[in-house]
Design a protein around this nucleic acid. Structure first.
Length: 189
DNA sequence: AGTGCGATTGACT
DNA sequence: GTCAATCGCACTA
């Protein structure tokens, strides 16, 4: 049974993630993702459907927001058919709109510190549990995916970051040479 | 009811 | 480079 999630994860590179709140609008170009696929021991869906990972089993295009390490939220885009379980983790954005608001949320001015890393993406975009399960193809969700706002560069592939199981899988995708991508030098080139 | 730990980050040596 | 912070969840009993 083929999985669509790696295709989605690669497709997301260059697309725009937009967040609308009472504070204003923030948006960024997605520059780094990771795919977590069915049968993947590193995936949150691997243990089966639970209250926590339920949104990963929604149809492709829904948000799965999880809380980790007692302090960070992370955003995934569900990537499979309903009931299958898989998603693309949004690991980094290049800020595009609402930069002052992102700076205020993050408590830093430096552009490359605003959304480089999944926890930072969530903080800069004010993403929390309230957005778990929303449809990212609907603007009324307050968080949605939009077309690219600029040409997209070469997309590189690498091993995933921060996991121990199935670490050898080449399921991380990123825009080559972009300074807003996380990881070590080797994983950014 | 208790336990162990995670798809991370930021502060510090 | 190393390490603490901090909490919800899955698992054991």
């Amino acid at each position: 049974m083929p999985s669509d999630t790696p295709v989605l994860a690669r497709w997301l590179i260059g697309k725009t993630l937009v967040r609308e709140t009472a504070q204003g609008r923030t948006a960024g170009t997605i520059v780094e993702t990771e795919a977590y696929v069915p049968g993947d021991a590193a995936a949150h869906a691997f243990i089966g459907r639970t209250a926590r990972n339920n949104s990963l089993f929604l149809p492709r295009g829904h948000a799965y927001v999880y809380f980790i390490y007692g302090m960070h939220f992370s955003l995934n885009v569900a990537g499979e058919r309903a009931g299958v379980g898989g998603g693309a983790l949004i690991r980094a954005l290049e800020p595009v709109e609402g930069i002052a608001l992102m700076q205020a949320r993050r408590g830093t001015q430096r552009l490359t510190d605003l959304a480089r890393g999944p926890g930072r993406v969530a903080e800069a975009m004010a993403i929390d549990r309230a957005l778990d399960g929303v449809d990212l193809c609907v603007r009324a969700s307050g968080l949605w995916l939009a077309d690219a706002v600029r040409p997209v560069g070469d997309v590189g592939t690498s091993v995933r970051i921060g996991i121990s199981k199935e670490a050898e899988r080449l399921l991380r995708f990123y825009e080559r040479g972009n300074p807003h991508v996380s990881g070590t030098r080797r994983l950014r080139m």
